Amino acid sequence: MLCNTSSYTFTEFPASINLVKNPFKRKLTEDEVLELVRAHNPDGIIAGVEELNEGIMKSAPNLKVIARCGIDLDSIDQKAAKKLNISVYRTHVAPDIPAAELTVAMILCLVRKLKQLDDSVRQDRWERTVTGLLYGRRVGIIGCQIIGTRVSYLMNNFGCSLLGYDPEVRRHEYIDMVDLDYMLSHSDIITLHMSLGKENYHLLGDREFEMMKPGALIVNTSRGGLIDEEALVKALRNKKIGGAAIDVFEEEPYRGPLLEFPENTILTPHVASFAGTYRFDIEKETMDNVIEGLRKKGVDV
């Protein structure tokens, strides 16, 4: 059994399963995944956000099961898996509450400038700056399904008005669904909660940042590839937007240019689901899926 995801810590699995963990303890490159698959020829893979394409699957003749440690399957070539008779599972435990809570915490930190205020006390400046207010702000939600919906519940209770963009959602209980351009040009705060695919890679680029309101705030706890980082850096440098809070990056661990903006960015190490018992529940269900899948394939586990 090969475990791609660097954050998997669950240990309560049958002794008959030999679990090979990600030796790099970070997101793997395609070449690294391929190297591990060829070296271990696993019966099953516990998948993170690394791409699992047909070439990688074919490099593991024994591969029978792929169990995604999470709800999104955007990184797995499901057509190839079906063709190769590989069962694909995902978890049903969605990290909607922890992801939504982190999103709201990030929004509040940006709006109320908590980093700057904390620094002013620690550096003995005691600057009692007037900050923004979340109440009455217009929040644009990109991706209005499980997690986006949970965010909408919380934002509604803060007295925010809500705009949403999601190609798969036409109507929503709390959110006024609009096209992306309208949402970008009319929102004070924009938060992303969408799976990543070829059709929305770098969904937010130079054009989209130019459309945003001056001083808009950006939050991404979803997928790093949804935002063109160069365009985001440019928008921050030119003060087109007021700040950004990012939990997910195309390259992790992150060592990129967003580190140059400590005053108006909040950067966290891909931890949206790491709260309460959610991570344990997700990892346990992933292992249960592996065991179920292998048994259905006739493997004695």
Rank of each mutant, 00 (worst) to 15 (best):
M1L: 14
C3V: 11
N4K: 10
S6E: 11
S6V: 06
S6I: 08
S7L: 13
S7I: 09
Y8D: 04
T11G: 01
T11L: 12
E12Y: 04
E12C: 06
F13G: 01
P14C: 06
A15T: 12
I17P: 03
L19F: 03
F24K: 15
F24M: 10
K27Y: 09
E32Y: 03
V33H: 09
V37H: 05
A39H: 14
H40D: 06
N41F: 00
N41H: 01
D43Q: 11
G44R: 04
G44L: 05
G44H: 04
V49L: 15
E51K: 13
L52T: 01
L52H: 02
L52F: 07
N53M: 06
N53S: 12
I56E: 11
I56N: 12
K58F: 01
S59W: 10
L63I: 08
K64A: 08
A67E: 13
C69A: 09
D74M: 03
S75V: 13
I76Q: 03
I76Y: 03
Q78A: 14
Q78S: 13
K79V: 12
K79F: 04
N85I: 13
S87T: 14
S87A: 15
Y89W: 07
R90T: 13
R90I: 13
P98A: 11
A100Q: 01
L102K: 15
V104W: 05
L110P: 01
V111P: 02
R112I: 10
D118M: 07
D119S: 14
S120C: 15
S120D: 05
V121Q: 05
Q123P: 12
W126E: 09
E127Y: 04
E127N: 08
V130K: 13
T131R: 01
L134E: 01
R137F: 00
G140D: 01
Q145A: 11
I146E: 00
G148T: 00
S152T: 00
L162D: 10
G164E: 04
G164H: 05
Y165P: 03
D166Q: 14
V169H: 05
R170T: 15
I175A: 10
I175K: 03
I175S: 07
M177G: 03
L180I: 03
M183W: 07
S185F: 01
S187P: 00
T191V: 07
T191I: 08
T191Y: 07
S195D: 15
L196D: 15
N200S: 09
Y201P: 11
H202F: 09
L203F: 02
L203V: 04
G205Q: 08
D206T: 14
F209G: 04
P214N: 03
P214E: 00
V219T: 01
V219D: 03
L226Y: 06
E229Y: 02
A231T: 02
K234E: 07
K234P: 00
K234H: 08
A235R: 00
R237D: 12
K240Y: 02
I246H: 12
I246G: 11
V248W: 06
V248Q: 05
V248L: 06
E251N: 12
L258N: 12
E260H: 09
F261T: 14
N264R: 11
L267W: 06
T268W: 02
A272P: 14
F274R: 12
A275V: 06
F280R: 10
F280K: 15
D281K: 11
K284V: 06
E285C: 11
N289K: 06
V290T: 02
G293K: 05
L294R: 12
L294D: 09
K296P: 15
K297C: 02
V301N: 13
